[in-house]
Write a protein that binds this DNA or RNA. Structure first.
Lengths: 189, 189
DNA sequence: GAAAAACATTGACAAATGATAAAAAATCAC
DNA sequence: GTGATTTTTTATCATTTGTCAATGTTTTTC
């Protein structure tokens, strides 16, 4: 499975084979079942995950017990609770597998070490931050100027995998609406 | 006015006086009137601004002509359309002064140059990205799990300057609701 | 494969928010 | 300062979205 990460680095970063080997060797394979939890609210996030197969989501639970999904990572995407991982402080999010998944994980200590050792790891951090920023930016934009139905159509265009592969419950929590509202939106098409 | 930026760097970054001088010398003062536009949708964003006095906002206009405010910078904060600035591609946002303001601006070319020359500028970029990420993250979280009224109360707690210093029109566009809804929310307290 | 659990849909109703219009208040321009 | 312009408030009504409850469907578990 490390082949997949090597290919990912080779395709997306300006780097060398040696650097790739060094960075990838810091990752360990982890296999998780559907619904298995990787990080709990209150934990300090100790790992960043690269998704080889399957999918993983980050979500909040509010005071009334309602879930709200912030981000969903599919194949060849990274996921972590960035702020908690970087600052090593407790997170207010959960991370769990939304399908059975094969992951590669890297610990905070190892990440810090290879960040000092390789420019690939530094670039990776910058890229992760940029991608995370852009993702939230688009999401925020969609909440600021779209109705629930418009957000659904937009999601169908820009990230259909979420709708195709995951349950309505999760799609609804990603769109910030109830399952019932999502059911109605889908029915009226 | 460059004193203010020097103090800001000295207080918030691990750096040297020489580096601060070098970075700050790349900024130029710019005075703008209230409602003056700094960046138009479709422009490639050529500057990053540091707010010395006053306030500046970044906002979208949707198909129906409705404004939605993404970010508001007050004293000692930076503002730009990060993605457009970094990639030098057109932005879909506007940036304008929400009060008369004194700014320090740095061009893309100068920013790129001092990023190569000083670690302070590199740290500044990383910090800007982290702050921008966290800001959007909180904003997204508030849309995912709060009602309009809850978002208003949350804003009053976490960033009262927006409510105290700016018009209802802008506050409403920041909360993603209509002015009339905001009026009602304020009345029912 | 059957029972249990989780998930999805539908309907009736309630609550929140938007749209429109008009009046009141505040601000701006000269 | 005064009239014009913009912003804010208020009211009414329409639409969207949420809540609750019932039922049907799918998935999980043993």
């Amino acid at each position: 499975m490390t082949e997949q990460l090597k290919t990912y680095f080779a395709n997306n970063f300006q780097t060398t084979t040696a650097e790739i080997e060094q960075v990838v060797s810091a990752f360990k394979e982890k296999i998780v079942k559907k619904n298995e939890t990787l990080i709990l609210k209150g934990d300090t996030c100790r790992y960043t995950y690269f998704v080889c197969k399957g999918s993983v989501r980050a979500y909040f639970i509010d005071d009334e017990g309602q879930e709200a999904t912030r981000y969903i990572a599919f194949e060849n995407q990274f996921i972590t609770t960035i702020h908690s991982f970087i600052s090593q402080t407790p997170t207010n999010e959960f991370i769990e597998a939304t399908e059975k998944a094969v992951l590669l994980e890297i610990s905070y200590g190892d990440f810090k070490r290879i960040t000092e050792e390789t420019s690939l790891a530094r670039d990776l951090y910058k890229r992760q931050l940029e991608v995370a920023y852009m993702t939230n930016h688009w999401r925020l934009e969609s909440f600021l100027k779209m109705s629930a139905k418009q957000r659904y159509d937009f999601l169908l265009q820009t990230n259909p995998a979420i709708i195709q592969r995951l349950s309505n419950k999760i799609v609804a929590s990603y769109l910030g609406i109830t399952q019932e509202s999502l059911s109605r939106i889908k029915a009226q098409k």
